[in-house]
């Protein structure tokens, strides 16, 4: 039986297939492992940082700090902005809330002026969302994460014309995959509606729908999310020798 975490990482890595020579940014352990797996397998041209300031020729395993060998380029924050504004990046983040437009939130739960729970702040999500392709990872597919209505504080913009000047969504808004512990979703339903793309082994469409706060587009046939091969699982294990992934995505 393939651990669910490995299937999720391999599925999330698909976000970077055919992206070419762009920065692959995965924020949080699972997105980072997915970006690292993509670079280690089918997308060797991706630019991957040490999560600090250098690009590395090979992905850095979780928990390792950057050795001086294997550095191929310089990635201070100012240049990350220069690259992301130019569109040469595809990020995967793990927002606390996501809504039917693909709008996401990592700032506050509740009222912005006096939040029930204050979190990080918007970080770079606003700029990312209107500059380059973005994908999402949601560790616990639930109505708390996939909210009805809109997220409490829109940090990352989505396909919601009402929020843009003149009702026009900027050309560079480009939302791709949503990978969860239940399914892989995308934005290819009618008018960018969120659609179920594949279901993880043993998960039904009804289970996904019941844990989502808004209606989902349902294709006639939904495949099962493919499990990675033994060779690919070995690559994932080498990228996460401590097994952090299994603490985030537990197998049933």
């Amino acid at each position: 039986m393939t651990p669910l975490a490995d299937t999720v990482i391999a599925a999330a890595a698909e976000a970077w297939r055919n992206e070419g020579e762009v920065i692959a940014t995965g924020i949080g352990p699972i997105p980072r492992l997915a970006a690292s797996f993509a670079k280690s397998t089918f997308a060797p041209d991706l630019l991957l940082t040490d999560s600090e300031v250098y690009y590395r020729t090979e992905p850095l395993p979780l928990g390792a700090h950057g050795a001086s060998s294997g550095v191929e380029g310089y990635a201070p924050y100012a240049r990350i902005f220069d690259m992301l504004w130019s569109g040469r990046r595809h990020a995967m983040v793990a927002p606390v809330q996501l809504d039917r437009f693909g709008q996401c939130n990592i700032s506050v739960i509740g009222d912005h002026a006096r939040p029930r729970a204050a979190m990080l702040g918007a970080r770079g999500l606003p700029g990312n969302s209107v500059s380059h392709p973005n994908s999402f990872f949601i560790p616990q597919h639930s109505k708390r994460a996939f909210v009805a209505g809109e997220v409490d504080f829109v940090c990352g913009a989505g396909y919601n014309p009402a929020r843009f000047p003149n009702g026009r969504i900027p050309a560079f808004v480009d939302l791709r995959l949503i990978v969860t512990n239940l399914a892989v979703l995308d934005f290819s339903g009618p008018a960018h509606a969120i659609r179920v793309r594949s279901l993880h082994e043993g998960v039904s469409f009804a289970e996904v729908a019941d844990n989502t706060g808004f209606p989902l587009a349902r294709p006639a046939h939904i495949p099962v999310t493919p499990a990675p091969s033994g060779q690919h699982r070995a690559i994932i294990a080498a990228l996460d020798p401590g097994g952090v992934r299994h603490t985030i995505i537990k197998s049933a």
């Binding site: 939040p115 729970a117 204050a118």
Partner: peptide, 23 residues
């Protein structure tokens, strides 16, 4: 990831101007 002193102040209503990092 989260600074508890900042969280407490925010949740008590500390006024903020929240920006994107690039802004």
């Amino acid at each position: 990831p989260l600074d508890p002193h900042f969280r407490a102040a925010r949740q008590a209503g500390l006024p903020v101007w929240e920006l994107d990092e690039g802004m």
